[in-house]
């Protein structure tokens, strides 16, 4: 049962195509696990559709006018086949605990993840996204904690397996935590199953103890 969902701002940003790649990945992964947010996304797509429908209402110029040979040119494209058209990529498939979009970034299931230790038994794997934000998988052994940290920007954390708790609440599989710069939190994984999360941030994390802070540039977090 998913209790923590995407915000309207994230859904509108994803619908409009305005989010950094790392956030898009978290949103697409959550929607793959959550029918409620999928339906909410589609209602934000409907806002985009309504804006498209009315996009001529306030246009007086003729720049957008479509030429008389435009339809013929489009039909010619269609008859020429897929060459100029983007090849349709099949929708991504789930791989074990990894939602389809995430599995595509990892290049397989959990076995394909190249973990790096970051101390305290915690491991992470940076995912290849553009630099506007960063995404990584986090592996937190059951009962272990992630070093206390605050944020300069927004941090999204999607639980894939296990659960963690911090001062705000408990987060289980499919739950998403949206932490802003005012939040300082120390997530601790629940006893039992090791916790695996997808996390994305649009600013470097800052750790509150000296050693992790010195390591931060090396760890690219």
């Amino acid at each position: 049962m998913i209790r923590h969902h995407l915000s309207d701002a994230l859904l509108m940003g994803y619908s409009a195509g305005q989010l950094p790649e790392a956030f898009n990945l978290v949103v697409a992964s959550h929607i793959s696990m959550c029918d409620e947010c999928r339906a909410r996304l589609e209602s934000f797509d409907a806002v985009g559709g309504a804006l498209l429908e009315s996009s001529l209402d306030d246009v007086v110029e003729t720049e957008q006018a479509v030429g008389g040979d435009s339809l013929a040119a489009t039909m010619a494209r269609i008859r020429a086949g897929g060459d100029q058209l983007r090849k349709a990529q099949p929708a991504p498939r789930r791989q074990g605990i990894l939602p389809g979009p995430l599995a595509r970034y990892v290049g397989g299931d959990l076995d394909a993840v190249r973990w790096r230790p970051v101390g305290g038994g915690v491991r992470q794997a940076i995912l290849p996204t553009d630099r506007s934000a960063s995404a990584r998988l986090l592996y937190i052994p059951a009962g272990a904690g992630v070093p206390d940290h605050g944020h300069q920007g927004t941090e999204l954390t999607l639980v894939l397996q296990g659960a963690f708790s911090d001062s705000t609440d408990r987060f289980g599989p499919g739950d998403i935590e949206i932490a802003t710069e005012v939040d300082e939190h120390s997530p601790v994984a629940e006893a039992g199953v090791d916790c695996i999360c997808l996390a994305a941030t649009d600013a470097p994390l800052r750790f509150n103890t000296l050693l992790p802070r010195m390591l931060q540039p090396l760890l690219r977090i």
């Binding site: 989010l19 790649e21 990945l25 793959s32 498209l52 929708a91 979009p101 553009d130």
Partner: peptide
């Protein structure tokens, strides 16, 4: 149209859900 715009304006990649 949104997906095409992301391509042409070289906006951030936008993975699709399952």
């Amino acid at each position: 149209a949104r997906n095409r715009r992301i391509d042409i304006l070289r906006r951030a990649r936008r993975p699709e859900p399952e």
